[in-house]
Computed example of a mutant assay.
Amino acid sequence: MEEQQSPFQAAIKPGLTIGLVSLALTFIAYFIDSTLLGSAWFGLVAIVLFFVLIIYFGKEYRTEIGGFMSFGTAFNFSFIAMVISGLIGLLGQILLFHVIDPSLASVLADQAFETQMSMMEKFGQNPDSMDPAILEQMRASTSKGFTLSGQLMSFGFGLIVYAIIALILGAILKKKDKSLDY
């Protein structure tokens, strides 16, 4: 009889796969048009793909362990896979923003700032009527997100988001063996 993998062991390969797929998408978008990396639809496509792949690999793992999985096992599997994937993505972004194209960070920061300004206008706030110091502070905080410390801090906050998403995925992936109920 083959020994079953723990959720941690089982999540390594899917985490690596998802991380490499997201990294490939990031670099493909960068080579096509670097401003795609700052677009909302690219982020939405990445998130949907992320969810689909985690659910796919989670169902594969559930089948591998006998067709049933507790919430805790599903949560652990999902969370570990996302953390591994996130670490690969972080390393890829550090490589992209600090080695391959250091000027990309300022381009994306400017794009994000312009998006913030257009959103403010849509909600009725005229950016021209705002204090220039506040606008400059907003621009600086947007740029800070692309620094090495900003990326590391973002990953730290991302762990909280990963945990919340893993809770949702744990609820989706769990499957109770009804034959054990009596």
Rank of each mutant, 00 (worst) to 15 (best):
L108P: 03
M1K: 10
L16D: 00
A171N: 03
G15D: 00
I160C: 04
K144E: 15
A46Y: 12
G150V: 02
E3S: 15
W41D: 07
F68V: 10
G158A: 07
A81Q: 02
S143W: 12
G89Q: 04
S103E: 12
I100C: 06
P132I: 02
A46H: 13
K174M: 12
G72T: 13
F71S: 05
L44T: 13
V52E: 01
L36I: 06
Q151F: 00
L169F: 12
I100V: 08
F71M: 07
M120A: 14
G158T: 06
I160M: 10
Q111W: 10
G67C: 04
G58W: 02
L91K: 06
G86Y: 02
L159H: 05
M153D: 09
I28H: 04
S78W: 01
K174Y: 03
L16Y: 02
M82E: 06
T147D: 05
L25C: 14
I84T: 02
A46G: 12
I160P: 07
Y56E: 10
S78M: 01
S39Q: 13
M69F: 09
L37G: 00
Q151E: 04
I28Q: 04
A81W: 01
L169P: 02
L25A: 15
T35K: 14
M82A: 13
F79K: 04
L37P: 01
M120Y: 12
G150K: 04
P14D: 02
L135K: 05
N126P: 06
V21Y: 07
P102D: 08
M138P: 05
S129Q: 09
R139N: 09
A112N: 14
T63I: 08
G66H: 01
L90P: 01
I47Y: 15
I164E: 07
Q111F: 13
A40N: 13
Q93E: 04
S149W: 01
K13A: 13
P132V: 00
H98W: 04
F51S: 09
D181F: 14
G145T: 10
L53P: 06
A81E: 01
P132N: 02
E136A: 09
I172T: 07
A109V: 10
F31H: 07
S149L: 13
